[in-house]
């Protein structure tokens, strides 16, 4: 098959196949990160890969395979919904993890919450961070 006869169909198929494989590899990366990273904060870093970029690539693959224009707004709505909910739950999990000391302080390069917690504890007369 000479290069001139490559149809747009084959190009779209190839692009969506690449998107699907890369999006699946994002999930594998998250699983490897979950298994190998030492504490909760670094595991949270790995866990966001399939939730945002992986889902983006796979929804793009769906849109490319269906080959109609009207699915794209639906897919964008699904992706934006994921973008709105994932940071909220990650924030809650990270906050609970900080509060219950699920972290190695020596692995942090900067702890910007420490000063705020100390200040709030001093203002309210607490010596420990008992919630």
């Amino acid at each position: 098959m000479s290069p001139e006869t490559i149809s747009a169909d084959a190009v779209i198929d190839t692009v969506s196949a690449v998107f699907m494989v890369v999006g699946a590899l994002m999930s594998l990366g998250a699983a490897i990160g979950l298994l190998r990273f030492p504490d909760l904060m670094s595991r949270m870093h790995a866990a966001t890969k399939p939730q945002v970029l992986g889902l983006f690539l796979l929804l793009c693959a769906v849109g490319l395979q269906l080959r109609t224009w009207w699915v794209w707004p639906v897919l964008v709505v699904a992706w934006i919904f994921q973008l709105l909910t994932v940071p909220v739950s990650a924030h809650m999990v990270g906050r609970a993890g900080y509060r219950t000391k699920h972290l190695h302080p020596e692995l942090l390069s900067a702890d910007e919450l420490e000063a705020v917690v100390q200040q709030a504890a001093g203002k309210r007369g607490f010596t420990d961070d008992d919630e």
Partner: peptide, 19 residues
């Protein structure tokens, strides 16, 4: 966190089935 990742993997499988 791991259960969240498992749900994301399930969603990825659903997307691939659709595609």
């Amino acid at each position: 966190l791991a259960a969240d990742v498992l749900l994301a993997i399930l969603g990825a499988a659903l997307c691939i089935d659709m595609a």
